[in-house]
Nucleic acid binder design. Structure first.
Lengths: 343, 343
DNA sequence: CGCACATGCTCATGCGCATTAGCAAGGAGG
DNA sequence: CCTCCTTGCTAATGCGCATGAGCATGTGCG
């Protein structure tokens, strides 16, 4: 095993001091006064030896390392969750590449009961300059504690709580806009099937949808597939006399759509459907739901950018990014929302 | 922001020296002689303060950090390549979680001309204890250089070259077995559409397939879709009088299958097809090719395990893992290989 | 000709930890 | 009572780097 090439070694080869090598590599223009000839000599030696600075030493000496931690509350890669994480990671990776930062995935925190805990593994957090938190639901206490410790982080998704930096999606507006379309189509009774309202994103969707519908006196019954069966949802639709079924989760929407077809209920001629989300991977045979489309790749990239700015300060020329920001969602017309007909 | 808690601080609170704290935390039983009372006092203080060691300092002092680097030659997450990387990363993540290691993704190395370079100026490779290298093709020189530097790494996929640790897939055997089925089905002329033979995995497939076919005097014409069009491939099939079309890449296989259908050539009644790979995400409308199926999740996990063993030595009870290992692929009968008929 | 000042570099130090050498105190053995 | 060994701890050092202080030269100016 070849002995490690250090700045000291470079210095010897170039006939200068270790300090000079360090200054050549990262001396500020003003404070360091190294003539071009010396600088070039050092750089030549560095190129010959393919020297790379030891990141551990840099960090110990008080440098940022351009290392951003990624904490996912569930496994990041398996296909069950990849629909959720993959587009975010895509955006994060591409932004990270542009910014020149590496990504530290905190996989060592074991997933217990389907969730990871940050604080248990706080130790590793310190290696990264800051951290991106991903997950549908997060523990507010943990977040608060982390925030108070002064550790820089940004969450992907809007979060309740003080002084937390996040980039989220404007589900509330988009859901309200879809509600408006439902109203314009003349519907008077709706059923909304949602996920757990523990997540801010789910509350935002529910709020946007229901507030708008209620303001036009459209009646809304709600249900959660976690609690009731598909059949019970269909029964609810019938008993409520609903003409439109709004579903938060696109996968559940497909399940319900299939169940409707099996029961002989045609969409949208007999029942309209509206979905408050979208599969991230377009399927070959996907149903063209009337839905909202969330810019998740952009979301990942924006979160990365905000964290980077938090760590490195605002670019001279640029304006600072807002500490909390909602990205707009697109509405997709689709073909599952029709004019309401009396039933 | 609270000042960082260090061993020094712990030492003051416990009324001992920094050395003692370090010894309590990781002194070997024999060399350190700390009475239970002192040990307990130190541990109590550590618990109260939630002290954790700075990983950068540990590394600088020559310690391993349970950090494994992941280097991908292309972007890891976008959907174009995710078919390739996702199953590997799934296996890696789950193995990493079991072993308690974090994953450092080297995203800062910019992708140039579609490829990343391992050894660039600010490479943070050394922050990780060791590294997993993923990619279809790798630069042999870079690999050799890295190997000589003594940096521990394992490549996912078989590699030519001395002293390189890898875990690969036994494409050669599996391809040969598929060739045997082709022979048993009475085919005498074949066309093989493959990817660039720069990759070891592609060479293995080509070798296994062609050696076996040739040994039974089955004629094989080869082509690469990078060089020729789909139409030219179909022309080649006709002009060669082939009764079976073997395709390395599953996506290309789908393209060719569609082209055949468009031309009115029925598979497998008029032309058999055999594929030397598989989409990692089963599509809804996927064609049930006669093919080989590669255990890619297991591959990722095995590579992680080998690297971990390289870094931490062999477990007492266990046998050591081989430094180079091929995992067997499964054969899937499918429905696209039929008995040859005279044309 | 002497002083101020700029230029080009080096010395010394510390980041937080692991580790080696070794010191002081106490007990056993002769 | 002196030696030798053990026990319980600490001082000192170095890992590779960044950085503030500072030391020689040279150069301009009065």
């Amino acid at each position: 095993m070849a002995p490690r090439v250090t700045q000291q070694r470079i210095a010897e080869l170039a006939g200068v001091s270790q300090t000079t090598v360090s200054l050549v590599l990262n001396g500020k223009e003003d404070s360091a006064r190294i003539p071009e000839a010396t600088r070039q000599r050092v750089l030549d030696v560095i190129n010959e030896t393919t020297y790379v600075a030891d990141p551990a030493a840099r960090r110990l000496a008080g440098q940022a390392n351009n290392l951003v931690g990624i904490f996912t509350y569930e496994h990041a890669f398996p296909s069950e969750t990849s629909d959720f994480y993959t587009p975010l990671l895509t955006g994060i990776e591409s932004a990270a590449e542009q910014l020149g930062v590496d990504l530290l995935m905190f996989t060592s925190a074991p997933v217990v009961d389907g969730r990871r805990k940050i604080l248990h593994e706080r130790s590793r957090l310190r290696l990264a300059d800051g951290c991106l938190l991903l997950g549908r639901e997060m523990d507010a206490d943990e977040l608060q504690q982390l925030s108070e410790s002064g550790y820089p982080f940004v969450t992907v998704g809007r979060r309740d709580g003080e002084n937390i930096r996040w980039v989220g999606l404007d589900y509330k507006s988009a859901s309200a806009d879809l509600a408006s379309r439902i109203i314009e189509a003349g519907h008077r009774r709706a059923v909304y099937v949602h996920l757990s309202l523990n997540a801010e994103s789910s509350r935002d969707r529910a709020d946007g949808l229901i507030e708008r519908l209620s303001s036009s006196d459209v009646a809304v019954e709600t249900a959660q597939l976690k609690d009731v069966s598909v059949e019970q949802v269909l029964d609810l639709v019938v008993s409520a006399g609903a003409t439109v079924l709004v579903v938060e989760d696109p996968t559940e929407a497909e399940t319900l759509h299939a169940a409707l077809r099996a029961k002989g209920i045609a969409v949208p001629s007999q029942l309209s459907m509206v979905v408050l989300g979208e599969r991230s991977r377009p399927q070959d045979q996907a149903i063209d739901f009337t839905r909202l489309s969330a810019p998740r790749i952009a979301l990942g990239a924006a979160a990365m950018a905000l964290l980077h700015e938090t760590l490195n300060g605002v670019d001279e020329a640029e304006e600072g990014l807002p500490e909390q920001q909602l990205l707009p969602c697109a509405l997709i017309d689709g073909s599952t929302l029709a004019q309401a007909t009396a039933r």
